[in-house]
Nucleic acid binder design. Structure first.
Lengths: 109, 109
DNA sequence: TCAACATATAACCAATCGGCTATACGTCAA
DNA sequence: TTGACGTATAGCCGATTGGTTATATGTTGA
């Protein structure tokens, strides 16, 4: 996950992911949305590839990139571990009480 | 969100968050789990503070840090936008079909 | 076959990063 | 009040990062 989090920590790379979420795109397609150079984009794409967030295939003399969103799964799972901490505490208390009540009735044997 | 993603891109800082998820801890408490120096930890804590992922309060001559997990909400929301792309396509197809079936029966007026 | 095109890589540069040591600062205990 | 403790900051260093220009590589069309 380290590589994934490092990859998405950069705003330009997140922008690339956003663009690819619309559908696969060639490098020059992508490039048209940025102000930096083509080699800079190629570097970003390499990182994203190595992180498993995009894949590419040659098409004629161009190369088409597409999103490999499953690579973000690890991030989603990591952050999900913390969800309990920010969900409204009263809400959470309610769930806890519900569970206790359930156990209570369950124990009523 | 940029600051947050940059903060969590570092494994040591993620480890700090994990520790604080167990409950609030003093700096020296935290430090005992790492091999790097106290100033290094203080730097990490500063970054986490600035990203809004932890808060601290003085306790005697120590300082106690606690998790501010709500800061991770933005990350959760960001990654959620991509969930549709990695949920199993057959699964998804199944849901679509279910929904169509439901609409079908709903229309049976 | 060769010139033009699309992309990747190489090599470099300034800025940032994660670590360090030294030190400053605030608080408690003697 | 002063010395020891807990933490933060300052200042330094080597490695990494995100950008650049120049060039290599592979593909297509004339």
């Amino acid at each position: 996950m380290d590589a994934v989090l490092k990859a998405v920590a950069d705003p330009s790379r997140r922008a690339v992911l956003d663009l690819l979420a619309e559908g696969e795109k060639s490098v020059s397609d992508l490039l048209s949305h940025f102000t930096f150079s083509q080699p800079a984009l190629s570097k970003h794409l390499r990182l994203l590839r190595e992180a498993g967030l995009v894949v590419s295939r040659p098409v004629g003399r161009t190369r088409v990139y597409s999103l490999e969103a499953a690579g973000l799964r690890s991030v989603a799972e990591w952050v999900a571990h913390y969800e309990q901490f920010w969900t409204d505490r009263l809400d959470h208390l309610g769930q806890v009480l519900d569970r206790m009540a359930e156990e209570e009735s369950g124990h009523a044997d």
